[in-house]
Simulated scan of single mutants.
Amino acid sequence: MTEKRGNLVQTTFVWKPIEDLPLNWMALASTELEGLARIWKSQARKFQESDALKKFHEQLSREWAIETGIIENLYSIDRDTTQLLIEKGIETALIPYGTTDKPATEIVPVLIAQQEALEALFSFVAQKRVE
């Protein structure tokens, strides 16, 4: 039910239990899905075999490690330096003086420890999924 009050529109939904699929649920499937699934699997295989996925995971891991410390207020790093560390790697030489609130020699070990912790966590989760 939708109700308008001045400039506000209020919509109310009545909860209903989820219904089971009909017995002929296979008839609902599109005939195009099998071909699309084959293409998807082929592209996924090519992507996984390329360095692009590995590079993406490495950069994402660095970003999460950096952002975790910023969120926890362990340090602050300016946005340009953060982006450089994400793209190139976590190295003291990539952190110019004045772009952080602490010396690079203090921040880099923390970043590396956070990245290792994230990798350990994801490794643990991946092993649990296999079982």
Results as ranks from 00 to 15, higher is better:
residue 104 A to Q: 10
residue 58 E to Y: 04
residue 3 E to W: 05
residue 1 M to H: 00
residue 45 R to P: 06
residue 65 A to V: 01
residue 95 I to L: 12
residue 15 W to S: 04
residue 74 L to A: 10
residue 25 W to H: 05
residue 35 G to M: 01
residue 113 A to P: 04
residue 90 I to G: 13
residue 98 G to W: 09
residue 64 W to L: 12
residue 103 P to Q: 13
residue 6 G to E: 07
residue 39 I to M: 12
residue 27 A to R: 03
residue 116 E to R: 02
residue 6 G to V: 03
residue 25 W to I: 15
residue 96 P to W: 00
residue 33 L to I: 12
residue 35 G to H: 07
residue 54 K to S: 08
residue 29 A to L: 06
residue 107 I to Y: 12
residue 61 S to Q: 09
residue 38 R to C: 04
residue 15 W to E: 06
residue 73 N to Y: 02
residue 107 I to H: 13
residue 43 Q to C: 09
residue 97 Y to I: 06
residue 23 L to F: 09
residue 109 P to K: 11
residue 63 E to W: 02
residue 29 A to G: 10
residue 116 E to Y: 02
residue 63 E to Q: 05
residue 110 V to T: 07
residue 77 I to Q: 00
residue 93 A to N: 11
residue 126 A to L: 11
residue 128 K to Q: 15
residue 131 E to F: 08
residue 26 M to Q: 15
residue 93 A to M: 09
residue 123 S to C: 10
residue 95 I to D: 14
residue 130 V to K: 08
residue 118 L to E: 06
residue 100 T to Q: 02
residue 100 T to P: 07
residue 71 I to W: 04
residue 28 L to R: 14
residue 50 S to V: 06
residue 84 L to H: 08
residue 34 E to V: 01
residue 39 I to C: 05
residue 5 R to K: 15
residue 4 K to W: 13
residue 102 K to D: 15
residue 76 S to Q: 01
residue 82 T to C: 00
residue 82 T to L: 01
residue 22 P to S: 00
residue 23 L to R: 09
residue 101 D to R: 02
residue 36 L to W: 03
residue 104 A to L: 08
residue 98 G to F: 05
residue 40 W to S: 12
residue 74 L to M: 11
residue 9 V to Q: 03
residue 119 E to F: 11
residue 66 I to L: 05
residue 62 R to W: 04
residue 7 N to P: 08
residue 75 Y to I: 12
residue 124 F to Y: 03
residue 49 E to F: 03
residue 87 E to A: 08
residue 110 V to Y: 13
residue 68 T to S: 10
residue 92 T to H: 14
residue 45 R to M: 09
residue 112 I to R: 13
residue 96 P to K: 09
residue 18 I to K: 07
residue 97 Y to W: 07
residue 13 F to R: 03
residue 73 N to F: 04
residue 78 D to S: 01
residue 130 V to W: 13
residue 100 T to V: 03
residue 94 L to T: 06
residue 67 E to S: 06
residue 32 E to P: 07
residue 122 F to T: 01
residue 72 E to K: 01
residue 25 W to F: 15
residue 128 K to I: 15
residue 36 L to Q: 03
residue 29 A to W: 11
residue 98 G to C: 03
residue 50 S to M: 05
residue 51 D to F: 03
residue 43 Q to V: 04
residue 106 E to W: 03
residue 34 E to I: 04
residue 92 T to F: 08
residue 8 L to S: 08
residue 109 P to C: 12
residue 48 Q to H: 12
residue 12 T to G: 02
residue 17 P to D: 09
residue 101 D to A: 01
residue 57 H to K: 10
residue 123 S to D: 15
residue 1 M to P: 00
residue 100 T to N: 05
